[in-house]
Amino acid sequence: MSKPKFAMYWASACGGCEIAVLNTDEKVLELDANFDVAFWPAAMDVKYQEVEAMEDASLLVTLFNGAIRTDENEHMAHLLRRKSKILVAFGSCANEGCIPGLANLSTREDLFERAYSGPSTENPEHLRPQTIWRAPEGVLTLTPLQPVVRTLDQVVEVDYHVPGCPPESRQIAVVLDLLIAVVNGAAELPPKGAVLGAGESTVCDECPRSRDVKRLTKLSRIQELPSLDTTTCLLEQGLMCSGPATRSGCDSRCPNVGAPCIGCYGAAPGVLDQGARLMTAIASVVDEKEPEAIDRVLDGLPDPAGTFYRFSLAHSLLRANRAALAETP
């Protein structure tokens, strides 16, 4: 009855990673059969104090999804690091900051302004959430928002990485199979720091679309194209596709159905900064020589930082806008 303990935690994220694990169908049953699920707030009721009470390193593996956005996130990262033998950054948020990380292009003040007083918000009294509020019922607290979104490995040491937004259920199954095999002595743990559940190349490797030499003369958004060719490379059709610079493993899901890759599997192996790779690749194939003409093509990319770093901003070399970073203590 001494099954190894398993945990999964949801920090600043959408919850898609949790669903993706459940989406592995009967693999969840295998998980349950091989592990003692000790802590998984989304799936079962275990109190925080119970985790605190656990012995250090008593959890064999924790799948940590979500970025570090709040003090609570940070606290839980530290706590779970202490309680886990193997800490896995699970999904794009934990690995690279993902969509929440895009907030790093703005200061907290700008974010609050946009969220609570923006054009789509009805808030005439300009109310803002407070971290401490004295209500008739007593003192209410809300965990404070940190200046910038961080990735799990910027807060605590991480053992393995499983990329994707969310990780593909097929790939999660591979990872779970590996863990189970390790538990049963049928496999050895990969070297620390390894990326699990992904390919070694980029999305184009799996994309079935035909491709040719690239010469960009115009970049469009998908709705601006009169029609889309179903068999040729989307980039060649003038769509900003992140596939060339995004790690493979998703079976090129998006391009398969005519949507350009948005880059959720992160950088290819050995790449320091995914956004820079996209930037250099796209700029290199702009088929113009005069600055004005180059600019005309680049005007088709109204939000370059948001496009190139859609998933990887928090983990990039610069990580955040200067003003937002400046607030970091």
């Binding site: 292009l105 956004g275 930037m279 250099t280 796209i282 700029a283 290199s284 702009v286 113009e288 020589k289 600055p291 180059i294 600019d295 680049l298 990319l301 939000d303 370059p304 930082a305 948001g306 190139f308 610069l318 955040a320 806008n321 200067r322 003003a323």
Partner: peptide
């Protein structure tokens, strides 16, 4: 022959991106 044009293109795109980082 013409590789400096690639540098030119990258520089122009880089500048646009860096502006969003407040540089």
């Amino acid at each position: 022959l013409e590789q400096n044009y690639k540098a030119l293109r990258r520089h122009r795109l880089l500048q646009r991106t860096l502006a969003q980082f407040g540089i």
